[in-house]
Design a protein around this nucleic acid. Structure first.
Lengths: 170, 170
DNA sequence: CGGGATCCCCAATGATACTG
DNA sequence: CAGTATCATTGGGGATCCCG
């Protein structure tokens, strides 16, 4: 991804990079070595979070991209783009999310500094979630991806149909 | 890092990760309402499998983004960017992927018209995978995202530390 | 070598109940 | 309203064995 800046001749340490052990997980998980290499080695280019074999930034990037891979995260960011929103407001808007997941996802976004959580000590309680500037900056790249998806959707659906058709009897 | 290579059956980067409805499923599967929107049909903006809420034609976008959310898909696309590659070559490069997942992912990418699969009837058999032009076009948006991730990684990690720190005693 | 078929486990989510 | 705590479910994905 980024290393394109310094072109590489032949077989560059590819840059792929995603890996997400779990979406949000609390403290416990991060520290815990969920790892455990199995026997031998894992010649992975992205050896879990501490692999240390890629140009540094790529590794961490995976952690970040992981959040983007999460459908709820993206959705929430998009929804908050129009302004702050309350917990249940978000829940209603999204529609298919469970209270639990909404909470977890918001926590993750908050942890990453993408959204802020403001609690109003009123009765009943009120909590507002809003995008931080960092959160707003994420919109562009995400929308770029969204636009690509929309732009190529026809081609992809066509490819799918063709593929499914040709593999009919198999 | 907690690298307890011993104890615990431990799990590799079994990365569960995002939604991926099923990587390859066919259209018919969509109907499978695991989440039947019971009763008062939720006013969800994205009818179940749909992910984004971009205006209008975002219907199938979610399906497409699902593939991007898949860590293996992205990785493979990035790897193939440099040219065609054979099955085991990919497997080795990626390192942490199981044969099964590689096959499944490649099938999905092929189905979506992002990569081509060329079989050489030799002995032993040889199969080359290469990006289609569509696949190549995906690199840009993905890299955009990657660049964002890398660019904001410091800020995010900082936010994480701060967050984790403040929620210490909890 | 590439990859289909199986078995099985566990992280990710949903559903439900309870509290401030 | 906004969460937190639990329990139950599932399907993603690793490990294996086998075949062309």
């Amino acid at each position: 991804m980024a290393r394109d800046q310094h072109t590489q001749p032949s077989r560059p340490p590819q840059g792929g990079t995603l890996m997400l052990p779990g979406t949000i997980q609390r403290e416990s998980d991060y520290a815990t070595g969920t790892t455990a290499e199995h026997k031998g080695h894992v010649p992975s280019m992205f050896d879990r979070r501490n692999g240390l074999d890629l140009p540094g930034d790529c590794r961490g990037a995976g952690t970040v991209l992981a959040r983007i891979g999460d459908k709820w995260s993206v959705l929430i960011v998009m929804l908050l783009a129009d302004g702050p929103m309350r917990f249940n407001e978000l829940k209603r808007k999204i529609g298919g999310i469970s209270q639990r997941m909404l909470t977890l996802t918001l926590r993750g976004l908050e942890r990453d500094g993408l959204v802020t959580r403001t609690v109003y000590a009123t009765i009943p309680p009120r909590v507002d979630y809003a995008l931080t500037s960092l959160g707003h900056s994420l919109r562009t790249p995400v929308e770029t991806l969204g636009l690509w998806a929309i732009a190529h959707l026809p081609a992809i659906e066509q490819a799918r149909q063709a593929f499914d058709l040709s593999s009919k009897g198999r």
